[in-house]
Design a protein around this nucleic acid. Structure first.
Lengths: 350, 350
DNA sequence: CTGAAAGCGCTTACAG
DNA sequence: CTGAAAGCGCTTACAG
């Protein structure tokens, strides 16, 4: 129907019988425009099916109406699978952006690449949200650099004193504490921990510290022989569990630093003929969608991704607007399922 | 460190001792630039940490280097949950975009909004990928309009003759056929179908048609009393299953049009004390991540999201470059798990 | 191989 | 309340 030439604000101006400046003002909602004029412009816009060219608009306004979401996972050989927890996050962040009228640009950055400049500087995004379970120490410098550049960004991660950036995260310490306390209540006394417990992975480390603190409160000690490193994949969980089994560690419960690790551990335990929860109680962290569906269903800490997404988006937006948001710790919630509940005796299902 | 004024190609030109045009050419990889000159420009770029302003660049080039991904799910009350199948798709599409040097812009459009113009016309994206299980008849007109506008877009969905757009989809008919054949092989003779079997949901409808065709090959007929509508949510699956149970339908197997529906059905069956697979064999479609983890693990058709993502991105890119890609049907793969396997007698696990 | 200049489509002081 | 004009930071014919 319409001719195939790009329609500009000048075409609208002609049709509406006003100047191009007025069209622009009308479209940006300037209070300076007469109501009647605004209506004429609107009519012209609709009849020509016009939309403002964002590139031109953004170039002038030095603004993009877009947030960038960067995943900084360690590169994985099997890169088709994103951690399901972050996938949930992605969903809620997208919703939160939509609510605020922002678009979301997504990028899966490998840690190796030089992302500090990619988005903010190239002006495709006004701010950045960083998500991932990568090695903290490996990207710490880059965060520093981002801060120096004055880039508006927030990070999902462990909230610790002295961080240069704004971080939103779950109360990992408390979560670890809750899990260990719960396992102790179930009568477990030798509770293994699966996950990196070092400053490379501060979220896991906090979970570990919460777990250790809870044990201590009950006169127990976190036994280094009952800890095995694992990053957040099923495979790593399987291997960590195997290593514990192979060195004949004695334990009656396993606290995995993430649900994915727990699922891998479950597989390793099953391989040895060990039953969960009867032989070994098991708990994870995150409450990813599968957690409720595996057999036995998995006790875990639920991180409220909806709330997290809102908080993340709200914080970047504040930074963009020149305000100074604070780092924030969000509560997690203990979800008790079958994997950790010891039946008093050999009874049936819950 | 650096002063906080925006660095432009003119700054680079000054530093490198060349004209701004040359800087631009060097950065865009023009073959016209002398190797030595290019190096000087590169050095200047790095020392000033410069990146090309995409808005300006895109404005001139009438190009954005961005693809938009639109989810056109029906608005759901619980909007924090995206169908896990599409979440997998999202992952693979993101990877495919990255591979091609494109950014991905994400938007969850409600069917109600007027998305036909939003992206392409506002020049934030060069092309659009459409994803969703919404009511086809409800957005058919808009697809038509998009085509008329000459927008570059591809859709994931049922590939049917006479469609105006480019569609990539799974071989739904074949998948439905495979499932029904498999269930028949397991000795099932009264196989129920859970899912909308109408042209509103063409993917489900194709699955249904494949199922009906397979039954027919075995001298059976798809019994309308064994079909109940459901869109692709767990809740709908639960309700559909309930309605069948409540009207006392007799069946020995259930083919759910999606895994989510199957999971809901499983819950309803368990509520009646019916055991899967012993009392009722069950199969789904999609092979979402939970499918292998639920108990019993779910027989389903795996859609290769990696391949799908590649195909989708490749097709839009072709359209953007003025080529004419074809609609394509991708093979699905029958994954047999415990939910549909009848043990010859009361033996143990598989 | 390089430079000077026009122009992409807007927004926003500036001057009425 | 409105218009004429400058300019955002690039890219790309055009002319050497």
């Amino acid at each position: 129907m319409t001719t195939n030439k790009k329609i500009t604000s000048f075409d609208i101006a002609d049709l509406a019988g006003v100047s191009q400046s007025t069209v622009s003002r009308a479209l940006r909602g300037s209070p300076l425009v007469n109501e009647e004029t605004r209506r004429r412009v609107q009519a012209a816009v609709e009849s020509l099916n016009y939309t403002v060219d964002k590139n031109a608009s953004n170039l002038r306004r030095k603004f993009s109406g877009t947030l960038a979401l960067l995943f900084f996972e360690d590169p994985t050989p099997d890169d088709s699978h994103i951690n399901p927890f972050f996938l949930s996050m992605l969903g809620s962040i997208t919703r939160a952006c939509a609510k605020q009228g922002y678009d979301l640009l997504i990028s899966f950055q490998q840690l190796s690449r030089d992302w500090h400049a990619d988005f903010a500087d190239s002006k495709k995004a006004d701010g950045i949200i960083l998500l991932g379970y990568g090695d903290y120490l490996a990207y710490c410098d880059r965060l520093q650099k981002l801060v120096e550049q004055g880039t508006s960004f927030v990070r999902w991660g462990a909230v610790l004193p002295g961080q240069p950036d704004i971080t939103i995260g779950c109360d990992n310490f408390r979560g670890g504490h809750d899990i260990a306390t719960h396992l102790h209540e179930q009568g477990c006394r030798r509770i293994a921990f699966l996950g990196d417990a070092s400053s490379h992975y501060p979220e896991f480390f906090e979970r570990y510290r919460g777990y250790a603190a809870a044990l201590e409160e009950h006169g127990l000690v976190a036994d280094p022989d009952l800890q095995a490193n694992a990053e957040s994949t099923e495979r790593a969980g399987y291997e960590a569990m195997q290593s514990l089994l192979e060195r004949d560690a004695k334990f009656d419960a396993v606290f995995a630093a993430s649900d994915l690790i727990a699922i891998g551990a479950l597989r390793a335990l099953a391989g040895r003929g060990l039953k969960v929860p009867d032989d070994v109680a098991l708990a994870g962290f995150d409450d990813i969608p599968v957690a409720g569906f595996i057999n036995p269903s998995l006790t875990t800490i639920r991180q409220d991704t909806r709330q997290a997404g809102d908080a993340l988006v709200e914080s970047v937006l504040k930074m963009i607007h020149g305000e100074s948001p604070e780092s924030a710790v969000l509560p997690g919630k203990l979800i008790v399922r079958r994997s950790s509940v010891r039946e008093p005796s050999g009874l049936g299902d819950a």
